[in-house]
């Protein structure tokens, strides 16, 4: 790819790298700043000039977080809700996606358009009746209220349908049929193993979405024992807003799990995102 006659230090290239370095700085600075404040004593932050490097009070601040909110229970609730939703979304989305991509049932175009149209409807629109339903079912203050309505996802169905259409050739399905596969076998044994990259990407998007969700859990999870980590963070921020060191420490601890999950899968995730959006 070497271009002849263009030196690495040409003005255009210097500008490009300069822009990228600034971008990287702006992207990473808030993470760094979270660590700086979260690891310093409050007195070191509340002065001019403020502390600019991580300090030695990280554990002390973390202990304050643990005594103010039930941090691990909240993380546990978030893990349960995110995992349950991710597993069901992956199953139902790939199953529907398979049906929309490979089964010639009547009205499939209409129903697929219907799925697409539902993606345009804002989630808040039905929040009041949704709350009433959860009340009637006795699911206020239960993770059911968060998990059950989110077990399916229009975006997931769309994503899987696109991926299966593009990657599984019809010949493969026909060959399976000749060998006597039922439709479910075609889905389970032929389609599912070939769409692992799409499942990984959708799984990560779903997991992060549930982990970071705020409005709906805020409405239905009022008791502290069932709150997800985001709601617990809000409690921490609302009740003890003067202790920035402790709050930012809690925020850092709450961001850490999702950061680790993301960094583990990041390569596949960004590749999947760019691939999926083209199709």
């Amino acid at each position: 790819m070497k271009e002849v006659g263009v030196k690495w230090y040409s003005p255009g290239r210097i500008i490009v790298y300069a822009v990228l370095v600034i971008m990287t700085f702006l992207s990473l600075f808030p993470f760094y700043w979270m660590l700086v404040i979260g690891s310093n004593h409050t007195s070191a932050i509340n002065k001019f000039p403020p502390a600019m490097v991580p300090g030695g009070s990280f554990i002390e601040n973390a202990q304050k977080v643990f005594s103010n909110i039930d941090f691990f229970a909240a993380i546990g609730n978030s893990v349960i809700a995110s995992t349950a939703i991710t597993v069901t979304v992956l199953f139902f989305s790939s199953l529907s996606g398979f049906a929309f991509a490979k089964l010639h049932f009547k009205g499939r175009k209409f129903w697929f358009l219907f799925v697409l149209a539902t993606m345009m409807v804002p989630a808040q629109l039905g929040i009041i009746p949704q709350y009433m339903i959860m009340s009637k079912l006795g699911w206020i203050n239960s993770l059911n209220a968060v998990v059950i309505p989110s077990m399916v996802s229009a975006f997931g169905v769309f994503w899987m349908r696109q991926y299966i259409s593009a990657t599984i050739p019809d010949e493969l399905i026909d060959a399976g049929r000749i060998d006597g596969c039922s439709n479910f076998r075609l889905y389970w044994s032929i389609t599912l193993p070939s769409i692992r990259p799409a499942l990984a990407t959708l799984g990560l998007i779903t997991f992060m979405g549930v982990w970071n969700d705020f409005l709906w859990p805020l409405v239905v999870l009022k008791e502290r024992s069932v709150q997800t980590i985001q709601i617990a963070l809000r409690t921490l921020n609302g009740a003890y807003y003067t202790d920035y060191a402790m709050i930012l420490n809690g925020t850092f601890l709450a961001t850490l799990p999702i950061l680790i999950v993301f960094l583990l899968f990041s390569k596949q995730f960004i590749a999947g995102l760019t691939e999926g959006s083209i199709k």
Partner: peptide, 19 residues
């Protein structure tokens, strides 16, 4: 650089607001 550009998107809205 792609990773650096994308990283902010994984943080929760609550965390972003607090930071």
């Amino acid at each position: 650089f792609r990773l650096a550009a994308f990283l902010p998107n994984i943080t929760s809205l609550v965390a972003v607001a607090i930071i």
